[in-house]
Amino acid sequence: MLILASQSPTRITLLNNAGLRFTAMAAPIDERKAEHDALTQDSNRAALARSLAEAKALVVSRTEPDAMVIGADQTLDFDTREIHKPVSRDQAAAQLMAIAGTSHALHSGVALARDGRIVWSTVESAILRFKPFSRQTLDAVLDLEGDAILGSVGAYRLEGPSLRLFEAIEGDYFTILGLPMLALLDALERHAPEVF
């Protein structure tokens, strides 16, 4: 049995597109507390993405011991600021205007757990550069995006109209979407071939 410890529509779609049969369930953790605890040990945003992915996989694995559990999380690294999923359009607009014309990194952590222990984890990163853009341009994109941007750590969706805001991208598309699929599929083949 394969479980995705997430209700993320994007991650669910990625696993479905890969032809995997799985169950999706939310990982019952306080992400801000887990983030705070992890950052007291290491301020590295990439390491934090991995730690949060492992925490999600472990918490579900402890209640579903026979299953292979996928945990995933993503952090955004920009100018030492803590940036999270926005709670409103205004907050999304403020975040995006603050990083217009600059680069930032997205770190996507993914982990596999079975029987209450981590059997594999990794983190992959991508660098994204925004064009300089006006508030008018941003408002037009946000109108097209609607509430979908509230589900993204960066307040944008590369698979949506937000793509108009970008100048350059270095890195794996799946990493940007929040689930490094190539590394994950390779790990599943090695650690849980029965799920294929």
Score class of each variant (00 low, 15 high):
residue 3 I to Y: 08
residue 72 A to G: 02
residue 190 R to G: 02
residue 56 K to R: 14
residue 120 W to M: 04
residue 83 I to M: 13
residue 160 G to F: 00
residue 74 Q to G: 12
residue 125 S to V: 12
residue 117 R to Q: 15
residue 67 A to P: 10
residue 39 L to G: 01
residue 184 L to Y: 04
residue 90 D to I: 01
residue 129 R to K: 11
residue 168 A to N: 06
residue 186 D to S: 12
residue 6 S to G: 03
residue 180 P to S: 11
residue 111 A to Q: 12
residue 11 R to E: 06
residue 112 L to W: 09
residue 4 L to E: 05
residue 172 D to A: 09
residue 22 F to Y: 10
residue 69 V to T: 09
residue 140 A to N: 13
residue 66 D to K: 14
residue 149 I to K: 02
residue 103 S to D: 05
residue 86 P to E: 05
residue 38 A to V: 09
residue 49 A to F: 06
residue 60 V to T: 11
residue 14 L to D: 14
residue 84 H to Y: 13
residue 83 I to Y: 10
residue 167 E to Q: 13
residue 130 F to S: 11
residue 88 S to F: 04
residue 67 A to V: 02
residue 90 D to K: 11
residue 45 R to V: 03
residue 108 S to G: 08
residue 14 L to W: 07
residue 170 E to I: 09
residue 194 E to K: 07
residue 112 L to S: 06
residue 84 H to R: 12
residue 94 A to K: 13
residue 38 A to S: 13
residue 140 A to D: 10
residue 84 H to S: 14
residue 178 G to A: 01
residue 119 V to L: 02
residue 126 A to F: 08
residue 44 N to M: 09
residue 143 D to W: 02
residue 90 D to W: 01
residue 35 E to H: 02
residue 159 E to W: 04
residue 75 T to R: 09
residue 196 F to D: 04
residue 109 G to M: 07
residue 101 G to E: 12
residue 2 L to W: 03
residue 136 Q to G: 04
residue 145 E to Q: 02
residue 100 A to Y: 02
residue 185 L to V: 08
residue 131 K to P: 04
residue 39 L to E: 14
residue 187 A to K: 07
residue 54 E to M: 12
residue 184 L to M: 09
residue 163 L to P: 00
residue 138 L to M: 06
residue 50 R to G: 13
residue 58 L to N: 06
residue 163 L to N: 03
residue 40 T to Q: 15
residue 3 I to D: 05
residue 136 Q to M: 13
residue 142 L to N: 00
residue 78 F to C: 05
residue 106 L to N: 11
residue 70 I to R: 09
residue 172 D to R: 14
residue 140 A to P: 03
residue 11 R to Y: 00
residue 77 D to I: 01
residue 45 R to L: 13
residue 145 E to G: 04
residue 159 E to Q: 14
residue 149 I to P: 00
residue 21 R to V: 08
residue 70 I to W: 13
residue 109 G to H: 05
residue 33 K to E: 13
residue 173 Y to H: 15
residue 124 E to Q: 15
residue 117 R to C: 03
residue 35 E to Q: 06
residue 137 T to S: 10
residue 175 T to L: 01
residue 165 L to R: 01
residue 51 S to D: 07
residue 50 R to Q: 15
residue 150 L to F: 00
residue 166 F to P: 01
